[in-house]
């Protein structure tokens, strides 16, 4: 099944609405709680990123019994050096954002840690696409 959300870029204090909604749906689907938690954390980080850096964007969630596939698409400034952005502690957040308690440089590393697959494609000046996959039955692998 598919879910779509628009993330509002104006109000970062409300960021997390999409991940909250997805959490609610996953609980009703009976997804294991540790998996829900990983998705919640990864999604929340991605959502916050879209609000802080790209003035919002779109989230598409595709849920199947095998996996959860989430695409975050924005039309923000893009990421110059993805490898650098993946490093813990690296952040391009402004002082203003840091004053608000964000910009610790843990967003992308956390997304990677809590997902099974993370793919980032970005074009400067055009936008960024973040794809996250979390498998639901990984024990057999």
């Amino acid at each position: 099944m598919k879910l779509n959300f628009e993330v509002d870029g104006d109000d970062f204090l409300l960021a997390g609405e999409a991940s909250s909604q997805v959490k609610k749906v996953l609980k009703q689907l009976g997804v294991a709680s540790d998996i829900i938690r990983r998705i919640a954390i990864a999604m929340y980080e991605a959502e916050i990123n879209m609000v802080l850096h790209a003035n919002g964007g779109m989230v598409d969630v595709d849920i199947s019994p095998e996996k959860i596939y989430i695409v975050f698409q924005d039309t923000g400034p893009g990421i110059e050096d993805i490898e650098l952005a993946m490093q813990e502690g690296y952040s391009t957040a402004s002082d203003k954002i840091r004053e608000l308690g964000f910009g610790a440089g843990m967003g992308l590393p956390n997304m990677k840690r809590y997902s099974d697959d993370l793919k980032i494609t970005s074009e400067l000046g055009k936008g960024t696409k973040v794809e996250i996959i979390v498998y639901l039955n990984r024990e057999g692998d």
């Binding site: 099944m1 879910l3 749906v25 609980k27 009703q28 689907l29 009976g30 997804v31 709680s33 849920i63 199947s64 019994p65 639901l136």
Partner: peptide, 23 residues
């Protein structure tokens, strides 16, 4: 223990179908 009383069905395939219907 957790109490999954919010879950729509034990079988996730059925739960997904029900969730689609719900939406």
């Amino acid at each position: 223990l957790s109490k999954p009383v919010m879950s729509l069905d034990e079988d996730m395939n059925i739960a997904i179908k029900k969730m689609e219907e719900l939406e």
